[in-house]
């Protein structure tokens, strides 16, 4: 026995990525974004407001179709300061990723938080508002970021 391991080199050639998703929740949400509105769906039975809003309630296991607009202001629920990238390499400009619960919504939206100078002063529970891109075109990126109020 002279070798303990050996590397086999070969290719991993899968075709292009395709994934069929149920369109309703995303379509309603991005349509709202184009008009600078945050739209979701509400369950008439348990009252849960989902943003983005699927066409069913996972708690009641029923179809739901009541479209609701929620506030563009809300509460900073949780955040993380990104000081490194996914490979562990330090980043030059640290940024904050956060989850926000907009008023009237039972879901959380994720985004980047701005309006701070020292991240040590950012606290959960702070009020934030939605900031839009200058031009909205019906894409997730229309919601530029959340801003501390």
């Amino acid at each position: 026995m002279t070798q303990e391991t050996r590397i086999i080199e070969s290719t991993w050639d899968l075709t292009a990525y395709q994934f069929k998703i149920e369109a309703d929740a995303l379509s309603l949400f991005v349509k709202g974004l184009k008009d600078r509105k945050i739209l979701g769906r509400k369950c008439g039975t348990c009252g849960t407001v989902y943003v983005p809003g699927p066409t069913y309630c996972r708690k009641c296991l029923i179809d739901i179709d009541q479209v609701v607009e929620v506030s563009q202001e809300g509460r900073l629920d949780a955040f993380t300061v990104s000081l490194a990238d996914v490979r562990g390499k330090a980043v030059d400009n640290p940024f904050i990723s956060c989850t926000v619960k907009l008023d009237g919504s039972d879901s959380f939206l994720m985004g980047v938080l701005e309006g701070w100078t020292d991240w040590r002063s950012v606290k959960e529970g702070m009020r934030v508002k939605v900031v839009w891109k200058d031009v909205t075109q019906g894409a997730l990126a229309d919601l530029s970021h959340f801003q501390l109020i």
Binding site: I8, S10, T15
Partner: peptide, 23 residues
């Protein structure tokens, strides 16, 4: 979603033995 999304024989080929069968 074996009918419309993933190509079954191609995908299954990657479950074969990586040292002897796949290369």
């Amino acid at each position: 979603m074996a009918g419309s999304e993933f190509r079954v024989p191609l995908t299954q080929s990657y479950t074969m033995d990586p040292a002897y069968e796949r290369p």
